[in-house]
Structures are given as C-alpha cells and as structure tokens.
Amino acid sequence: MSNFLGRLFGRSKEESSAQAAKRRLQFVLVHDRINLPPDLMTAMKEEILQVISKYVQVAGESIDIALKPSEGDINLLIAEVPFAKTLSTPRGALEDNDDDDLDA
C-alpha cells in the first residue's frame, strides 16, 4: 500500500519536511473535500474487491486504492488490482461459489 501510494505521490527518500507536509495535505484534502474518511474508503475498497472478484480472480486479498489530486477540477480514484495471469478455477465454479455465499 505505502509503496503504491509512494509511487502515486512521488515520495522519495530525500523528501524535505515541507515536501512531506505538501504531500500529506494534498492527500488528506482530497478526502476532506469529498467527505470520504478513511473508514468509508476501506468499506468502498472491500466492495470494489468483491465486485471485481466476480469477474476476475484477484491475486492476494487486498487492492490498493487511492484518491489522487490533479491540476484541474477532476480528481482521480485510482485502484491497483493485482489479478492472476491464469484462471485456476473455471468461471462456473466461481459463480457457484457466489451463489453459495448468498445462500449462506
């Protein structure tokens, strides 16, 4: 996660404290402005993970997701979802699993 965010926000080892302040502020203000605190962000992340898992097999148990400030009026929601190169279970099996989940 931190590695992903680090690349996203251009963090480097030689970062000055002023650069750190700017990076942290830009990150937190994107959340403040759309009123999406970290706990809701986590909930959204889990739902996105569930949806994507319906169609592709996600590698690992987590995805990286971040709001990125941009120059204009539009901010970006960027998600990095690692998925398996080959499907280890047939699609039908995945869907069956989903049905089982719903029944349970």
Partner: peptide, 16 residues
C-alpha cells in the same frame, strides 16, 4: 525555514 525545506512555501500553499 522555507529555504531549508522545513516550511511550506507560498507556492506550495497556493498549489494546495
């Protein structure tokens, strides 16, 4: 402090 990189500059603040 701004020159040492330990305080946000005016440009930093207007960027934010």
């Amino acid at each position: 402090l701004v020159r040492k990189g330990d305080m946000l500059s005016a440009d930093d603040v207007t960027d934010i």
